[in-house]
Write a protein that binds this DNA or RNA. Structure first.
Length: 431
RNA sequence: UCCCCAGUAGCUCAGUUGGCAGAGCAGAUGGCUGUUAACCAUCGGGUCCGCGGUUCGAGUCCGUGCUGGGGAGCCA
């Protein structure tokens, strides 16, 4: 007897198969009974009829509660009345386990309750769709870099120093006499990698101890961070655009069913084709001014300002050359205009905010030393980083793409917490 | 850290002017020969978030704490 996955039953019409899965639902009408089964690849209706199904299975039916784990054996039939087009005419049912009363009913639930049951919530069709899109986003991004000759170079998660202030760092004890921090970014290490391999990227979790309670923030989130030697801002802007295009194409190609299930307006994603919009910080300020939300030059955008700018466009918008004073110490200043940094942010459409941040790195030892001092960082922590400029410094650039915000945007989610299997938020470490 | 909202059955919620604690779903029992979140009937199920106060009487009003949600600040 073949054990068949639900998404493959179409190839077994008329044959007897066994499907192993979980009970999502059951219904009955007189002597005919229905089990809805889920196995991770899809759902299918199994039909029990007196006379065709054995007595053991008919008796078992009445004991089964939602999420009981089952092996269902029967004949695959095409039937218009069955959701999905195929059903199993059951000959026998065995239970691996009869579930206790399942807390998540097929009705509505509040966010807090679902988050407390995240380990079970993952079984619902909506989460199935979202996390499939996440899988594809990560895979598409990695394939994009692999195909262009990048080397995957994983960055450490435990680090000895902060690259920004210590206020947003998670601190942990390191063998009693020292402190270690959870990485906020793999970037500095990718710079070292770029000097060794030319083109590198990392993909992994990063941590921010920001006390942010918004729909765009997690304390643990994943980034894909490429870094390229002999590259300037323009090169990296082209790379950022091409990466997003590659991700969108792959999601549209392989995740139609998931997007449909999420009731995502696919036409808005189909618009995401090159070229994207490219504006300077100064031009973004003008857009805000025209919208009646003037901001003095030198200030960073808040969430509402980002939304105003991104709503101005139907595709992602690349914003370059922010004031140097609001950007990190390692950003290279524009030689033609020293008050701005050669940096790049990409805002997703529909108010999903910044999905990419990056730019060209400072490659001059003396200037970088100065900037480290200005940022009041410990010079000795960055000795190795300065070495990269002492031994064959080259122009180089890179960026980080936030996985969760990208997934939230493509899926049309209201909050990034659904775009990662087990979200970590300011007040939530369970489950 | 600040602002706003909420906390009543396992879940989602209603509860009028302060006067006997309610519905739908889930669960149990029974009915129905093709159901689509089936339907119909019956039944069980309560620390009304905690503490304090006002009152003859508090789910309801006041104070306070806790928890959750939304937002702000913050966010290379």
């Amino acid at each position: 007897m073949a054990i068949v996955k639900i998404d493959a039953v179409g190839g077994y019409e008329g044959q007897s198969v066994t499907i192993c899965g979980w009970l999502t639902h059951k219904r009955s009408s007189g002597r005919i009974r229905f089990l809805m089964l889920r196995d991770g690849t899809g759902t299918i209706q199994a039909t029990l009829i007196k006379g065709e199904t054995n007595e053991h299975a008919l008796d078992l039916y009445s004991e089964l509660l939602q999420e009981s784990s089952l092996a269902v054996t029967g004949t695959v039939r095409r039937d218009k009345r069955a959701p999905g087009g195929y059903e199993i005419l059951v000959s026998d049912v065995e239970a691996f386990q009869v579930a206790d009363t399942y807390p998540i009913a097929p009705k509505e639930h509040g966010v807090g309750f679902l988050m407390d049951h995240r380990h079970l919530w993952l079984r619902s069709s909506r989460q199935w769709a979202i996390l499939h899109v996440r899988h594809t986003v990560i895979n598409a991004a990695r394939r994009f870099f692999d195909d262009q000759g990048f080397t995957l170079l994983d960055a450490p998660i435990l680090t000895g120093a902060s690259c920004e202030g210590t206020t947003t760092l998670f601190e942990t004890d390191y063998f009693g006499d020292r402190k270690a921090y959870l990485s906020q970014s793999g970037q500095l290490y990718m710079e070292a990698g770029a000097m060794a391999f030319g083109k590198v990227y990392c993909c992994g979790p990063t941590f921010r101890a920001e006390k942010s309670k918004t729909r765009r923030h997690l304390t643990e989130f994943w980034m894909i961070e490429p870094e390229v030697a002999f590259a300037d801002l323009e090169t990296i802007m082209k790379l950022a655009e091409a990466l997003i295009v590659a991700i969108v194409e792959e999601v549209l190609k392989t995740r139609q069913q998931e997007l449909h299930l999420l009731e995502r307006d696919i036409t808005r994603i189909e618009k995401i084709r090159p070229p994207f919009y490219v504006i300077s910080y100064d031009e973004a300020l003008q857009i805000l001014k025209d919208a009646g939300e003037s901001l003095p030059w030198g200030e960073d955008f808040g969430g509402s300002q980002e939304t105003i700018v991104s709503n101005h466009f139907d595709k992602p918008v690349l914003i370059h050359r922010y004031p140097a004073q609001i950007k990190a110490f390692y950003m290279k200043n524009d030689p033609d205009r020293s008050e701005v940094a050669l940096c790049l942010d990409v805002l997703a459409p529909e108010g999903y905010g910044e999905i990419i941040g990056g730019g060209q790195r400072e490659d001059d030892t003396a200037i970088l030393k100065e900037k480290i001092e200005e940022a009041e960082l410990l010079a000795e922590d960055f000795k190795w980083y300065l070495d990269l400029r002492r031994y064959g410094s080259v122009p180089h650039a890179g960026f980080g793409l936030g996985i969760e915000r990208t997934v939230a945007w493509l899926c049309g989610l209201e909050h990034v917490r659904e775009s990662i299997p087990f979200p970590r938020l300011m007040d939530r470490l369970y489950p």
